[in-house]
Each structure stands twice: as C-alpha cells, then as structure tokens.
C-alpha cells in the first residue's frame, strides 16, 4: 500500500474542523452527482480545483489517483458515442457518432473528475482515525465507528503479515502462473490470512475486555475551534447555492 497520502499537511483545508469538511463534501457530492447542466458541471470542476489548490494537494499524486477513473471514462468514450441512439454528429463510413452519446460522455467525465477532486481535497486530507472520530460526533452508531477504527488499525498489521507470507513463498520459488497450483497456493495464502486475522481478533477482543470495553465508544479527540471554520461554512454554502441555482433555476 503506497502511503503518499494527502492526509498529512498544513494547508487551510487541513486545519478546518473535519466534521464540517465531511458534511460539506457530502453535500457538494450529492448536488454534483445529480447535475447535468454544463455550466453547473464546469463550475463544480472549477470549485473542486480551487479546493484542491487550497488543500495544496500534490498535482502528480492527484493525477495518479485519477488514472483508474480516467481509464473507465476512456472505455465510455470508446463505446458510448457510436452505440448511443440519437441525432448523428459525425459519420465515418459505417460508424456514426451521435450527439447525445458525446454529450453524456462529456457530462460523466466532468462529473467524475469534479467529484474525485472534491473528495481528495476535503476528505482524503484527513486520516481515517480522524474520520472515525468525526463520524462518532455526528452520531453514527458506535458499532460502525469501532469497526472502522479496528479495521484501519489492523489493516497494516495484516498487510505486513501478507507481505511476509508472500516473501516466504517467493523464497521457496513460487512463480504465479495460470494454473491450478498457483490458484491453490493463493487460496491457502488467503485462508491463512483469514485464520490469523481471526486469531488476532480473539486476542484483541480479550485485551479490549481487560480494559473494560463495553461497547460504548469514548472519543477523546478534540476538534478545536478555528477561525477558518466560519469562512469554510460560508464558502460551502455559497458554492451549494451557486450550483443549485445554475442547475435548476437559470
């Protein structure tokens, strides 16, 4: 797991209350996801880039993270323009590209990138444990928050376990190929990961019981007030109103 994440940083966005960022990101995402007007989508993209600039995101990492969705978008651009039924835009021998097909591809592309960049700027700029505590303050169920935090805590432990097993396999000259032997080996590797995870869960649970775990999650994290919080609220509200007016009023 490459760890060059956006979570560490000292930008304006990093200092804003995670609860506000979470609520703001969800609200913006919901509005953008149901918009189709090009003015709205381009405004949303501009806003997301502005947020990314404010969060001082590393441009190269942003582009690398966008590669997977861009590959999917390329698939859409390869298929939709000719398979979509509608008014023709361009005809090339047997192939007809339709106007609604191209429009839809452009809408989806703008939306995808705006949504992803907003996510990176507002949510990926906090660590998962911060998200857990923020969810707890927003009254999400304790069980879910505890589960999220346990999963995050032990993800890296289990990943190291996996790397260790993989190294042992390589030292014994395991070479993955398309055959039953390779698949069986991978199946056993996964099996032992589940077994060790389960054993570890038993020990961790024991330790939690010893420390008096009763199901209630006590979050000791303090989200201290910051002068930028108000400005951020204003900015998000303004953006939401602007997007809604552009999409549904104008």
């Amino acid at each position: 797991m490459n760890q060059d994440s956006f979570a560490e940083g000292h930008s304006v966005i990093h200092r804003i209350d995670p609860r506000l960022r979470l609520v703001g990101a969800v609200a913006l995402a919901v509005v953008v996801a149901v918009s189709y007007d090009f003015t709205t989508l381009i405004t949303a993209l501009a806003l997301s880039l502005l947020l990314a600039l404010m969060a001082q995101l590393d441009l190269r990492t942003v582009i690398r993270r966008l590669l997977a969705p861009i590959l999917f978008l390329l698939l859409l651009w390869a298929v939709l323009p000719w398979s979509f039924k509608g008014e023709s835009f361009l005809t090339w021998g047997l192939i007809t590209l339709t106007r609604p097909g191209i429009t839809l591809c452009a809408q989806i592309s703008l939306k995808t990138i705006a949504l992803m960049v907003t996510f990176m700027a507002l949510l990926a700029t906090m660590t998962v444990d911060t998200l857990g505590h923020a969810l707890n303050r927003l009254r999400f169920p304790d069980k879910l928050v505890v589960m999220l935090l346990i999963t995050f805590r032990y993800l890296f432990v289990i990943e190291q376990e996996y790397r260790r097993l993989l190294r042992a396999m390589k030292i014994r000259n395991f070479q993955p190929k398309t055959n039953l032997h390779s698949y069986r080996t991978y199946a056993y590797l996964i099996g032992i990961l589940f077994v060790r995870a389960s054993e570890r869960a038993r020990r961790v649970h024991g330790a939690m019981i010893c420390r008096g775990f009763s199901g209630k999650f006590f979050s000791l994290r303090e989200f201290s007030p910051h002068p930028w919080n108000g400005a951020f609220c204003f900015f998000i509200t303004f953006s939401l109103i602007l997007l809604i007016i552009l999409e549904w009023v104008v």
């Binding site: 999220l148 999963t151 032990y154 289990i158 991978y186 990961l193 589940f194 199901g215």
Partner: peptide
C-alpha cells in the same frame, strides 16, 4: 465486532492480490 473488523481488514488486504 473485533472479529468482523479484523476480517474486513483481511478482506481489504486479500483484494489487493
């Protein structure tokens, strides 16, 4: 809960294979 959380972590790691 620890059991489910840990298995979710194992699921996450195994899906990287």
């Amino acid at each position: 809960i620890p059991q489910a959380g840990m298995l979710a972590a194992a699921f996450f790691v195994a899906s990287l294979i």
